[in-house]
Computed example of a mutant assay.
Amino acid sequence: MKKKLISLILTLIQLSVDFSIVAASISLVIVIILVASTPFTGFAHELFDYHSWWSLVLQAVTASVLVFLAIIMFVGVHSLLRNINSGLYFVNQNLVAVRQILWPSLVVFVLQSLASICFRL
Score class of each variant (00 low, 15 high):
Asn83Cys: 06
Val108Leu: 09
Phe74Leu: 13
Leu5Met: 09
Leu80Tyr: 10
Leu47Glu: 00
Ser25Leu: 11
Val61Asp: 00
Ser79Met: 12
Ile30Ser: 07
Ala63Asn: 12
Leu66Gln: 06
Ala115Phe: 15
Trp103Arg: 10
Asn92Gln: 13
Thr11Trp: 11
Leu28Ser: 07
Val61Asn: 01
Val110Leu: 09
Val110Ile: 14
Glu46Phe: 14
Tyr89Asp: 11
Ala97Thr: 05
Leu114Ser: 08
Ala24Leu: 07
Ser55Ala: 11
Val57Gly: 08
Lys4Met: 05
Asp49Asn: 07
Val96Phe: 03
Met1Ser: 15
Val108Tyr: 00
Phe119Val: 06
Ser37Ala: 08
Ile71Arg: 01
Gln59Asn: 04
Phe68Ala: 13
Leu114Ala: 07
Leu95Ile: 15
Arg82Asp: 12
His45Leu: 09
Val61Leu: 12
Thr11Pro: 00
Ile33Pro: 01
Arg120Leu: 12
Leu5Asn: 10
Leu12Ser: 12
Val29His: 00
Val17Thr: 12
Ala70Trp: 10
Trp54Met: 10
Leu66Gly: 01
Arg120Met: 09
Pro104Val: 06
Ala36Asn: 08
Tyr89Ala: 15
Asn92Ser: 07
Gly87Ala: 04
Leu69Met: 06
Ala115Thr: 09
Ile32Arg: 03
Ser105Val: 11
Phe43Cys: 04
Leu15Asp: 03
Trp103Pro: 01
His45Tyr: 03
Ile13Thr: 09
Ser105Asp: 07
Ser116Cys: 11
Phe19Cys: 08
Leu88Gly: 01
Ser79Cys: 07
Val75Gln: 11
Leu28Glu: 01
Glu46Tyr: 09
Gly76Met: 05
Met1Arg: 07
Tyr89Cys: 06
Leu95Asp: 11
Asn83Met: 03
Ala115Arg: 13
Trp103Glu: 05
Ile32Lys: 05
Met1Val: 10
Val98Phe: 06
Phe48Val: 11
Arg120Glu: 11
Val77Pro: 00
Val67Arg: 02
Ser25Ile: 07
Ser86Val: 03
Ile6Gly: 01
Ile9Asp: 07
Leu12Ala: 09
Leu56Phe: 05
Val91Pro: 02
Phe68Glu: 04
Leu47Ser: 02
Val22Gln: 00
Phe40Gln: 04
Ala24Met: 10
Ile26Asn: 00
Leu121Ile: 04
Gln112Lys: 15
Ser105Thr: 13
Ser37Ile: 10
Thr11Arg: 10
Asp18Glu: 09
Val96Ile: 15
Leu58Ala: 15
Val77Ser: 05
Ser37Gln: 15
Met1Phe: 12
Met73Tyr: 02
Leu102Lys: 10
Leu34Asp: 14
